[in-house]
Amino acid sequence: MTAKKRPPTTICVASGKGGVGKTSLSVNLAYALVKSGSRVLLVDGDLGLANVDLLLGIPIKQTIRNLLDESGNPQDSLVFPIENLGILPATSGVPEMVTLGPDEQSRLNGFIEDLAVGFDFVILDTAAGIGPSVLWFNRQALYNIVVLTPDPTSITDAYALMKVMARQHPKNAFFTILNAVANEREGRKVYNNLQQVVSQFLSMELELLGTIPADPAVNRAVKAQTPFIQSEPECPAGMAVSTIAAKIEKWGK
């Protein structure tokens, strides 16, 4: 592959509520994009409670925290679980990472920009909630994906997140992925309500990227510390992720 001149497409994945499978989804999307020929940088933006490394069972050398504290070489922080997939790990259990001061924000931004050179996509996987770091990562991204499940609290929290983002930094559209749905119809129904409210109250578009069925393969993969798209690519969730990845791929073109 020849190096593209164009800058990478930056995508932020957020959820509002925790435990909706956001990080697992980010990881699997990253793998799916790599599989179809893209180079992907996955940034673990869950700065206080990072777990991308856990999902992949990879040892990490140094984290975003080390970078900010000791200003090491950002390249040394990257881990490559497979070819063309770089991961910038965060630190788990370091509360002060949740609030970044403006100086740290601009330095972190610089690190990510440096690291992103040569990648086609940068996926920023954020923390749960609507804290400052979540909003900051979302501001850096060109595309904002909000992950939710049909659980009422997840729907409400996802909407709350979009509302805060819309108020603080208005954009044209949000993208959403409905995770762990019983069936396509359930996912559509949740999306339709959400889309209506987003359009009516936030005056923004909400595009459905796809629905992912509840699938025991997802939990099996988390326990095995491997992405389901690798271990069981033909499972229903894996197929759904591949479809979504194909749509995202077009953003990079």
Partner: peptide
């Protein structure tokens, strides 16, 4: 007020 989710929105969201 500007960013909280109001009942009106919640009802529509959850149907």
């Amino acid at each position: 007020e500007s960013t909280g989710v109001r009942d009106e929105e919640k009802n529509l969201l959850l149907g």
